[in-house]
Simulated assay, not measured.
Amino acid sequence: MSMNGKYALGILLTSLLLGAVMLYVFPLIHLISGGTGSATAIFTYSRAVLWIVLFTVFLYSFMIEKQPFLLWKDKAYSSGFYLKKIFSLYLICAVGGAFLNLLIKFATQENTSGKLLQLSHVFRNNYALIIFTCLTAGAVEELLMRGYLQPRIEKIYDNRYAGIIVSALLFGILHSAYGTVGQVVVPCFIGIVFAVFYKIYSNIKILMICHFLYDFVSLMMMNFMDIKHLSVF
């Protein structure tokens, strides 16, 4: 098999595994536990499964592709650069995401995601779960979507825009399990912002930190305020 063929198979494997987690992990864990597991435990196990997906894809890159997991070597920057870029990326995502959510709510009049309403009770005052969830999102999603998928998509199509657009679309589609337009469009937007940054600066650590902060602030706001009041954000 050619290297592009191995990359394509890896992309398919990653997409299928992530899609399966988003669609089937909750009912599967519920079935295995015999319906006795708490919502908090089931959600915690589902995040652990994402780490297993990351490990599986890492093994694929090491054993089948025989390539580094990160095809683009991380570039080193100063502490000031890290702080400036993390702040600017967070601001772009937070303001842009809120604006898009506002437009979608006015255009579609869609209700707040039922799944998010359920999760708001799971996260209530559970700070360990909040941190674990944000760490999982920041590390696993960035390493897979930007670190693994984006460079390989670019190499297959020999087009940098393909890597940015396709990885961002996959990122948005994987959030469709939340059941609202906003929960697809906003992640697509964030995926584009992150993918463009990664293409320009080739530093996955900044994206992981920014992703963690974005989710952490969102979940902490959800913890202290009624999610219906935050739905526009």
Rank of each mutant, 00 (worst) to 15 (best):
G97M: 11
G97E: 08
F99S: 12
L100S: 08
N101M: 05
L102T: 15
L102G: 15
L102I: 12
I104L: 12
I104V: 14
A107V: 11
E110K: 07
E110R: 07
E110F: 05
N111Q: 13
T112L: 13
T112E: 10
T112M: 04
S113L: 12
S113H: 13
L116W: 09
Q118C: 00
H121A: 15
H121N: 14
N125C: 04
N126V: 09
N126P: 07
A128T: 13
I130E: 03
I130C: 04
I131H: 04
F132T: 03
F132L: 11
T133G: 08
L135P: 05
T136P: 07
A139W: 12
V140Y: 01
E141A: 04
E142T: 07
L143N: 10
R146S: 05
G147S: 06
G147H: 03
L149Y: 03
L149R: 01
P151I: 10
P151W: 10
P151K: 11
R152N: 04
R152I: 00
R152F: 06
E154C: 13
Y157H: 11
Y157I: 02
N159K: 07
R160T: 14
Y161K: 13
A162C: 06
G163N: 11
I164F: 02
I164H: 03
I164V: 14
I165S: 00
V166I: 15
S167H: 03
S167E: 05
G172N: 06
G172M: 03
I173R: 07
I173H: 05
L174N: 09
H175F: 10
S176V: 01
Y178D: 11
V181H: 08
V181T: 13
G182Q: 11
G182C: 11
Q183R: 03
Q183K: 06
V184C: 06
V185A: 15
V185M: 14
V186C: 09
V186Q: 08
P187Q: 09
C188S: 00
F189C: 02
I190E: 04
G191T: 01
G191D: 00
G191A: 00
V193S: 08
V193Y: 06
F194G: 01
V196R: 11
F197P: 06
K199Y: 12
I200H: 08
I200A: 07
N203C: 12
I204Q: 05
K205V: 07
I206K: 10
L207P: 08
C210G: 05
H211S: 12
F212R: 02
L213W: 00
Y214M: 13
D215H: 02
F216G: 03
V217W: 05
V217A: 09
V217Y: 05
S218E: 02
S218W: 01
M222G: 06
N223R: 10
M225G: 06
I227R: 07
